[in-house]
Design a protein around this nucleic acid. Sequence first.
DNA 1: CAGATCGGTTTCATTTTGAAACTCACAGGA
DNA 2: TCCTGTGAGTTTCAAAATGAAACCGATCTG
Lengths: 150, 150
Amino acid sequence: MDVSLAAGGTWTDPACPVARTVDLIGDRWSLLIIRDAMDGATSFTEFRRRLGIARNILTDRLRRLVEHGILDKGADTDGRRHTYRLTPAGKDLFAAVVALRQWGERHAFAPDEPHSVLVDDHGRELPELRPLGRGGAPLSVEASHVRKTA
Amino acid sequence: MDVSLAAGGTWTDPACPVARTVDLIGDRWSLLIIRDAMDGATSFTEFRRRLGIARNILTDRLRRLVEHGILDKGADTDGRRHTYRLTPAGKDLFAAVVALRQWGERHAFAPDEPHSVLVDDHGRELPELRPLGRGGAPLSVEASHVRKTA
DNA sequence: CAGATCGGTTTCATTTTGAAACTCACAGGA
DNA sequence: TCCTGTGAGTTTCAAAATGAAACCGATCTG
């Protein structure tokens, strides 16, 4: 994939993987486009219908996601219709989307408020995603730290 | 916590937990502030030093994060200095930050490019965070779907 | 008291976003 | 062939967000 920012851009914090990821998909729309791509959306019109996003912004975000190797743009044989599909790198964002979703379920809804649910093949809700230490035990924020590059 | 958006705001997609989470922390800075809070930053000045963010924007983001129950603002006995600390909801974003970090490590760096590393108490790198199905086996994007609310 | 520090607010220019109108290519039907 | 609709944009322009810099006020430190 393209490991660089678009035209002239510089990383907010070049050594930090969190910062680079946020530079690539940390805006109001990119992650929602990826969410919908994971849920089966493939065309410009379909993304637009689901998101209610302005046309020019969608054009721009799709272009960026393609540039960064997260989506792949194909011309449908049809001629006019295009298809946007997740690349392997795009699909690899699944864990991040699940983590954000689960946090939202826990903290962004009132206890009685309904929300959509992510389920597996058998319609069962996913277990909570938790960082583990090397030993396999859950790892807390306090028990970890960032080792800066030499 | 405060399960609502700031003054007059409406959710991008009220029923989707991913969208709500993105509405709360899906901007260029919030996640990086949270990252640094997880790494020990607690003061206005310290966040500013680490991020190079404009003062007014930092003021605004800290206020929003406090409003949304992700950070807790305390007055240090000192008098002038304040402390911003993660609430339990804030600490619960750990999984999401780890997922974004790991994706960045895999896809936003050239193979030979150095980056900071998240390690556990014993200095060992964390294992990859992967969504699992109910059975305990890794779950692919294709093997899951979103069940909309009734 | 003078100066530095901390945590802001205000001002103003630049950038990004969004809504709406316009364009262009193609396909199907009358 | 002409008309109409659809898909995928581009252009234009106003509104909102962002960022740099100056200013402010309280509190410590010498």
